[in-house]
Write a protein that binds this DNA or RNA. Sequence first.
DNA 1: CGGCGCACCTGAGTGC
DNA 2: TGCACTCAGGTGCGCC
Length: 281
Amino acid sequence: MPELPEVEVTCRGLRLHLLGRTVVTVRSSGKSLRQPIAEDLIRHCLCAKAIHAVERRAKYILIRFEGKAVLVVHLGMTGKLGVFPRDGEAAKHDHLALSLDNESELRFNDARRFGSVVVWPGDEAEELEQTFLARQGLEPFSAEFTGENLYELARQCRLPIKSFLMDSRRISGIGNIYANETLFAAGIHPLCPANSLSTEQWQDLATCAVRILKQAIAAGGSTISDFLGASGQPGYFQLQLAVYGKKGEECSQCGEEIEKEVIGGRATFFCARCQKRRHQG
DNA sequence: CGGCGCACCTGAGTGC
DNA sequence: TGCACTCAGGTGCGCC
């Protein structure tokens, strides 16, 4: 479900409910996510602590607490983080709940359990965050997300441009939906080798990516099957998708049939007429 | 090191 | 109704 826009929408929703609240109790399902949930450590680090900030880094949600501890959440494919009335019914696949000091509860739900929840204790948080940040790719909304930097990053890399865009160690936040949409907007074929683009083409691609990600955030993200924001609201950007999931439909620009091909193991949608393999700088 | 295939897990959809 | 199979928004491992 969650690429940068969905994670950002979740963060913004959480902020409204969580800032200034204090954690009262912690409980988990006992089921393992990508790693086991360190329930006791989470309880020890977060109970009676106030929430100071909710931030996004790449596709991670960082919830910062009084005393510097940080709860780091990744939504995986089906994860949802939301705030509910404490006495409301638990949903299937709820795996962690932090009850708060106002009768509400922060819940992490994840059917496939590809997500993760980790706590950085206050006395280690700074060091752990440095290590974490060093492993993340370029942030699309940062000043460093420029044609020149992307050109440099891709210089040695012959991967298909689509696989490059989706590589979180190189670029943060762009997954399968937004890689497809960005390449269509930029008129670039997904199999184009990453190192075949000029600085100018990279700049154009960067501009398209940022525009689409911002539009998606404004639409509340994409709800393809089950994404919901922090207050349980769906997104609507799926109504604006140009190619993702549209195999066999007419291209909105030229009327040609949208094609589907598997690239790097992921479904890839494109218009072969609008998206060319070779570009003149 | 680069790039590929696959594993992790559940649920929804399809075809027989 | 049920079974078998495919596919899904992400990441990270082992292997060549």
